[in-house]
Design a protein around this nucleic acid. Sequence first.
DNA 1: ACTTAAAGGATAATTATTATCTTTTAATAA
DNA 2: TTATTAAAAGATAATAATTATCCTTTAAGT
Lengths: 133, 133
Amino acid sequence: MINYTNILRQHNLKATPQRLAITDILHVQGHITIESLYEVMVKKFSSISLATIYKNINLMLENSFIQEVKIPHAKSVYEITKESHSHLACEKCGEIQDIIIDLDNILNEVAKTNTFKVNSSDLVLSGICKNCQ
Amino acid sequence: MINYTNILRQHNLKATPQRLAITDILHVQGHITIESLYEVMVKKFSSISLATIYKNINLMLENSFIQEVKIPHAKSVYEITKESHSHLACEKCGEIQDIIIDLDNILNEVAKTNTFKVNSSDLVLSGICKNCQ
DNA sequence: ACTTAAAGGATAATTATTATCTTTTAATAA
DNA sequence: TTATTAAAAGATAATAATTATCCTTTAAGT
């Protein structure tokens, strides 16, 4: 179990117990919605405020410690920032998985047209995961 | 200017003036947020209710007459359903453009892994559009 | 024209998110 | 260690976004 104290501090975030818990949950779960995060957090901090969840998620987003992933027909999930990657979204169980897909060819094609300067790409593939097939 | 009366009816939607206007706006603008749609509609129907906008957008989504496009760091936009395509999102002016990108190679790669059955893909490229460069 | 199920408008209710204010605490230095 | 302080947590009010309700109007088919 990684200790995120210093990593949080490197992002100008005080390492509070609540933040360490959020970070640990994100690390273990990979992707989580606000409401699920709150449910899990309440088990550890019975008196935690939903506002604390929102404030921390927003601060972590601002500091690029985490990223929001928008999922078609579902709520957004949050994940710890890592190298650029795409997502698989299971339409049955809701599970979100990371997947590394090389988009260079595509981005080069777009670059050739010279009509749009791409800075980032977000790709979500929706379907049925291994477990649900 | 296309007449959408029959197209609406084919989707089990009564062709009301409000719906024809929404459809016409979507047709002309290409992509629009809920709030922008409401602003434009109020000019044509001064007494229109915001609930009418939401109810129609939701019905049109259910009947697959339109689609929601989730944009990173911005509000969702809606578009008339057409053949599968990707989107360019300008980070400066907010403009959303359609772009046809062949994702077959990518989808085949994922299919090969045999761990996920892809039904649909959503790709948004964020960056700077021609006008804003 | 008549009938009726569906749609529109007004607005209340709900849900999601943010702001405010007070108390507590992590981080730093004496 | 303890003292100091800016920041964070918690409680809750406020705001924003969306949906539900109820009554009136109307599109579409006799």
